[in-house]
C-alpha cells in the first residue's frame, strides 16, 4: 500500500523469555480506521506497545510518515503526533478530569473550541470536569482516555480495546464518537484500533488486519471480511454475525 501512514515490516518483540511478535507486517493507510482483530494472546496489544516504543522491537522496522521510529524513545514517538489509548486507559486517577486533559494538551493550553466539540461527544466529562478522574465510572474513564487522545490534532491514534468491559449503551456511544471523529475529514486523523467487539469493529473499520500467534494472517478491507462468513470462520473460527 503506497499511502501508508504507518508500516511495520518483520517486527519481532521479545518480553523476557517470551517471543511475542514473530514477524509482524502491517500497513495502516492514511486517513482511515484500521482494525486489528485476533484472539486473546495473539499479540495485538504488544503490537501497539511496540509501535509506541513501550516495548522495544528486537528486529524489523517501523516507519511512520516516512521515518524509521523503532529505535526512538516513547516520548519522541508521541511527539511525532501519535496518541495512545492503552487497554487499561492510563487515567491519572488522583488528578482531576481537567488536569488529565491539560497534560494531554502538550501545547500548554486547551483549545476551547475543540474542548466544546469533545464535550459534545462525551458530556460526562463536562459534568465531572473538576472531579478526580478516579471517581469516574469505567465508561467515563474510557471517554476521558479517548478525549485525551483527541484534545489536540494527532496524525495517528492507537486505541486498545476501548469497549472492553463496557455496557452496550456505552459501546454504542463510543462507536458514535469514533464515527464522528473519522468523518471529520479536516481532522486528517488515522486510527489503529485493537478491538474484539465485532459490531464496533465493523461499524468503524475501513481496513482490517487479523493477528494470530504473533503474526498478521490477513489484511484487507473490512467490508470484504464482514461479507465473507467463510473467511471469518477460517481466520478466527468465528462469524462476525454470530457475535453482533
Amino acid at each position: 500500500m503506497s499511502d501508508a501512514l504507518l508500516s511495520l515490516n518483520g517486527i519481532h518483540t521479545h518480553i523476557g523469555p517470551y517471543h511475542i511478535l514473530q514477524g509482524v507486517d502491517l500497513e495502516v493507510p492514511r486517513g482511515g480506521v484500521t482494525v486489528l482483530l485476533g484472539r486473546n494472546g495473539a499479540g495485538k496489544t504488544t503490537t501497539l506497545r511496540t509501535i509506541m516504543g513501550l516495548w522495544q522491537a528486537s528486529q524489523g522496522t517501523i516507519r511512520f510518515d516516512g521515518a524509521a521510529i523503532q529505535k526512538e524513545t516513547t516520548p519522541a514517538i508521541a511527539q511525532r503526533e501519535i496518541a495512545f489509548v492503552p487497554e487499561d486507559m492510563g487515567i491519572f486517577s488522583d488528578l482531576t478530569v481537567h488536569e488529565n486533559m491539560l497534560l494531554a494538551a502538550r501545547g500548554g493550553a486547551i483549545d476551547e473550541e475543540r474542548l466544546g466539540w469533545i464535550f459534545g461527544l462525551f458530556p460526562p466529562l463536562k459534568t465531572f470536569w473538576q472531579s478526580a478522574a478516579g471517581n469516574l465510572s469505567g465508561g467515563q474513564k474510557q471517554m476521558l482516555a479517548v478525549a485525551r487522545a483527541i484534545i489536540e490534532p494527532r496524525k495517528l491514534i492507537l486505541i486498545d480495546e476501548p469497549t472492553k468491559g463496557l455496557a452496550p449503551a456505552i459501546i454504542n456511544a463510543m462507536i458514535a464518537a469514533l464515527k464522528e471523529l473519522k468523518e471529520l475529514k479536516e481532522m486528517q486523523t488515522t486510527i489503529l484500533l485493537v478491538e474484539q467487539n465485532f459490531s464496533m469493529a465493523r461499524a468503524v473499520g475501513d481496513t482490517v488486519a487479523v493477528m494470530d500467534d504473533g503474526r498478521i494472517v490477513y489484511s484487507g478491507d473490512m467490508a470484504e471480511l464482514a461479507a465473507d462468513t467463510g473467511l471469518q470462520e477460517r481466520l478466527m473460527g468465528l462469524s462476525l454475525e454470530a457475535h453482533q
Partner: peptide
Amino acid sequence: EMVEALGYP
C-alpha cells in the same frame, strides 16, 4: 509510562 506515552520525557 502514560506520562511518557503523552510525549513527556
